[in-house]
């Protein structure tokens, strides 16, 4: 696999703990890839190695074929948007954005023009003379983005860039950053622990877990065909149901299931809550997967309702669109789903 940005066998340890373990990744020109994972999975360390802020112990980083692994940060030409934005508090918005151009020796007139263009791009025209502390969080975020983009970096790196914004603003910025990224056709690597961010802003997602890449794929691949149990449980939510064998047949919560035996000695079946439906206990379900239980609790979440069902094997959550009629708490109920929605993994090792 070759790409515009190529990481090969990147490895970094801090003392006893391995932060990044043999990470390899190839990203095409203009592609947006998310590094998704829980905190401490090594995603930010990977990003900092790309920017030259952390030295890898092993491995190489190539941009457009050139090995930049040992190049200092200031000679890499990468745009980096920090989680804290890291704007220069002593400089105006215009000087903040022009900083990289000044360091590159761009003529003063060109700097003014390009800073103006960059401000227009992020919808902040007219705020040139403000200080960072006089801006709202969203505006600071835009300045940080403009500052990173104005130098025409070869790669744009974003570190949890939306995590400090409130929910509404985050939605707006998500779309805005994605459309800027597409219109500039800039190769981009996002680091995020927010799956919605990863799913909506990127062409592909690399899910990281304990320093390794657990799976790389399109958002749909990751969600519908998770390659590892960790991916299935981290991206989206999933009910884990233990399967047992009974003379060749497979049972869940004691009920026989119409599914093929994967052949493993024991395994769990994971199902997304919104792929399950509820039906009266007596109603037949044909060849669908099915378990019996009773309604333990219902939670109204606005656009959807979560129904917690308790059965002989534990509890599971069914997610339904709100507005429909719901079974009362305590009612006996059947939960059914299609066999093709099964995600089958060995039991959780942890």
């Amino acid at each position: 696999m070759t790409g515009y940005l190529e990481l090969t066998g990147l490895h970094k340890r801090y003392g006893e703990s391995i932060a990044v373990h043999d990470v390899s990744l190839a990203i095409g020109k203009g592609e947006a890839v998310a590094l998704l994972g829980p905190s401490g999975c090594g995603k930010t360390t990977t990003l900092r190695m790309l920017a030259g802020l952390v030295d890898p112990d092993r491995g190489t980083i190539r941009v457009d074929g050139a090995d930049i692994t040992r190049l200092p940060a200031h000679r890499r030409n990468m745009g980096y948007v920090f989680q804290s934005y890291a704007l220069f508090p002593h400089l105006s918005v215009a000087r903040n954005i022009g900083f990289g151009l000044e360091e590159r020796g761009v003529a003063r007139g060109d700097i003014t023009r390009r800073v103006g263009d960059a401000l227009a791009l992020v919808h902040l025209a007219g705020l040139e003379r403000r200080r960072p502390r006089e801006l709202s969080g969203g505006q600071q975020q835009r300045v940080a983005l403009a500052r990173a983009l104005v130098v025409h970096p070869s790669v744009l790196l974003l570190d949890e860039s939306l995590s400090n914004l409130d929910a509404k603003l985050r939605d707006a910025m998500r779309h805005e950053i994605r459309s800027i990224q597409k219109s500039l056709d800039i190769t981009t690597l996002f680091v995020t622990h927010d799956q919605v961010e990863a799913l909506t802003m990127c062409d592909r997602i690399a899910v990281m877990h304990r320093g390794r890449i657990a799976q790389i794929g399109t958002p749909e691949d990751i969600y519908e065909r998770p390659a590892a149990r960790f991916v299935a449980e981290f991206v989206g939510r999933a009910n884990a149901l233990a399967a047992t064998r009974d003379g060749g047949g497979i049972r869940i919560w004691g009920a026989a299931q119409p599914m093929n035996d994967p052949g493993w000695p024991s395994f769990d079946i994971l199902i997304r809550p919104q792929r399950m439906r509820l039906l009266p206990s007596a109603e037949p379900t044909g060849d669908a997967m099915r378990v019996e239980g009773r309604v333990l609790r219902r939670a109204f979440v606005g656009d959807r309702v979560e129904v917690l069902v308790e059965g002989p094997g534990g509890q599971l959550t069914v997610e339904l669109p709100s507005g429909g009629t719901l079974p009362e708490e305590g009612t006996a109920i059947a939960v059914a789903w299609r066999p093709q929605d099964n995600l089958i993994f060995p039991p959780d090792a942890a």
Binding site: A51, G52, L53, P72, A73, H74, R75, R76, N77, M78, G79, Y80, F82, Q83, S84, A86, L87, F88, P89, H90, F99, G100, E103, R104, R147, A148, V151
Partner: peptide, 27 residues
């Protein structure tokens, strides 16, 4: 000093002594 502020200057193309002169010392 504010977190990552010197790293930000470095990623924008400032050599270490330029980071010192333009960011670290003024702050």
């Amino acid at each position: 000093l504010p977190h990552d502020i010197e790293a930000a200057a470095a990623t924008l193309g400032a050599a270490p002594w330029r980071v010192l002169r333009r960011v670290t010392l003024p702050l």
